[in-house]
């Protein structure tokens, strides 16, 4: 009698599945895992390229100790947090308003057009956004000064002073990422069953009540994903700021990623820079866990 549990010939070689998976695994390893492991090893060594004759000795957690006791690290991290706390609420509020407007029935062609145009800022390369920012906030011929001139205000040297430069990078981030928030919210709103919205409309005329009691639960999963993605993105935000201000004037717009770049590729202290980068990774993971813990709710 034959054993029913015996495996029959599947019709392909033992290694065939491996070869199908191999390209993805190799790419992931080369792009993601190897650099992370390399950074981990580097962060545990004294790895300064300008002093390569000293070798790259193992120093344990010394780099981490140095980073955690470095006031500039904490300053730039605080500046990054401030940047996030300024731009994120604005992007959420504006994105939600845009999504609610696009969720209203009627004007189908214009709504479809608006949805397509929302993708344009998202599809624009970060460095190009930065260059656009330099033009927009140029003291002599920038649109920003033309705009404030309309209201009788004098022209400002936006990128030449600390507050102006910080405001400028915030504005460009809001310009680029509000559409992303709007699209995420819009997809959440489209998940709300029509009958449920209608049932609520029979009970209340308040749009606010409809939003908070009925639509909000459907927005939370997207909202959580938005927070996670934006937090990770802001922590590694480099191109826009670098092309716009190079972190200046002074350190006014030196976000954490600009600082890590400075440590890694101007001072060439790759050991410290790797430790900083890995600490950012830990912060990102912790933030993601917190967001999921506090905001994520499944519907049904």
């Amino acid at each position: 009698m034959s054993n029913p549990a015996r495996r029959t010939n599947p019709g392909y070689g033992r290694w065939t599945p491996f070869w199908f998976l191999a390209p993805a695994v190799v790419a992931l390893f080369l792009i993601g895992i190897y650099p992370t492991l390399f950074a981990l090893v580097t962060s545990l060594r004294q790895y300064n390229l300008t002093r390569s004759r000293d070798g790259f000795p193992f120093v344990g957690l010394a780099n981490y100790q140095a980073v955690l006791s470095d006031p500039t690290f904490w300053d730039t991290l605080a500046r990054t947090a401030r940047f996030f706390l300024v731009v994120m609420p604005v992007e959420i509020a504006l994105g939600l308003c845009v999504a609610l407007l696009l969720h209203r029935p009627g004007l189908n062609f214009l709504r479809a057009l608006a949805r397509v145009t929302l993708v344009i800022p998202l599809a624009t390369t970060y460095a190009v956004v930065g260059l656009l920012g330099r033009l927009v906030f140029n003291r002599d011929f920038g649109v920003a000064n033309s705009f404030i001139n309309l209201f009788g205000f004098p022209a400002l040297d936006w990128l030449g002073n600390s507050a102006g430069a910080f405001a400028a990078i915030c504005v460009m981030d809001v310009w680029q990422w509000t559409p992303f928030c709007a699209l995420i919210f819009l997809s959440g709103l489209s998940m709300v069953p029509v009958e449920i919205e209608e049932a609520a409309k029979l009970e209340t005329t308040s749009h606010w009540a409809l939003l908070t009691h009925v639509q909000l639960p459907y927005l939370l999963p997207g909202f959580t994903a938005m927070l996670i993605l934006r937090s990770a993105d802001v922590l590694k935000l480099f191109d826009v700021v670098f092309t716009m201000t190079r972190g200046g004037p002074g350190a006014a717009t030196e976000l954490i990623s600009i600082y890590i770049q400075r440590v890694g590729f101007r001072v060439f202290d790759l050991g410290t820079a790797s430790a900083q980068a890995l600490l950012l990774l830990v912060i990102t993971i912790l933030l993601a866990r917190l967001y999921i813990r506090f905001f994520y709710r499944e519907i049904e």
Partner: peptide, 19 residues
């Protein structure tokens, strides 16, 4: 507006708030 008509409606799909 629907809410001011003082009507109640029962839907085919029940339309209960799942949360």
């Amino acid at each position: 507006e629907p809410a001011k008509r003082q009507v109640s409606m029962v839907f085919q799909s029940y339309a209960l708030f799942p949360h």
